[in-house]
C-alpha cells in the first residue's frame, strides 16, 4: 500500500492517523504541506524517524524546493521527483490518500 499525505502535520492529524494505520513495509509519500514533517528540527521529525523503522518514507522534491526545505530533509527520507511519484503509484497495488 502507498499512503499519500498532503496536509501539514502541525495543522491536521492526517499524518498521525496515517502512521498509526499504515502496516509494516508500506510506503508513505509526503507531498505539498506534508513535506515539512520530513524536515529536521520540527515537532513531527520524531514521529517520522520512529516510523522509518517499519515504513518507507518518501517526500516529493518539487514540494520541498518550493518551500525552501530541500536542505533540511531528515536522513533516511527518500526524495522523489514527479517521475518517482508515478513509479511509487504503479509499483503498488493500492493507494490511500489521507485528505
Amino acid at each position: 500500500m502507498l499512503h499519500i499525505v498532503n496536509k501539514s502535520a502541525t495543522e491536521r492529524n492526517s499524518l498521525e492517523s496515517c502512521l498509526r494505520m499504515a502496516t509494516k513495509g508500506s510506503a508513505v509519500l509526503l507531498i505539498e504541506d506534508a513535506v515539512y514533517a520530513a524536515t529536521k528540527g520540527g515537532v513531527a521529525a520524531a514521529q517520522i524517524q520512529a516510523a522509518m523503522a517499519d515504513l518507507q518514507i518518501y517526500a516529493l522534491g518539487p514540494d520541498l524546493d518550493a518551500r525552501g526545505m530541500s536542505a533540511r530533509v531528515l536522513d533516511g527520507v527518500k526524495v522523489v521527483d514527479y517521475g518517482g511519484f508515478v513509479d511509487l503509484v504503479t509499483e503498488t497495488n493500492a493507494c490511500q490518500s489521507w485528505l
Partner: peptide
C-alpha cells in the same frame, strides 16, 4: 504564527510546482 512562519522561509524555488514564488 504556527505554520504561518513557513511563509517567510528563505530560498524557496517554486519552478517545479509551477506557482509564483510570492515569498
Amino acid at each position: 504564527a504556527d505554520d504561518g512562519v513557513y511563509e517567510l522561509i528563505k530560498g524557496m524555488n517554486t519552478k517545479g510546482i509551477e506557482v509564483k514564488d510570492f515569498s
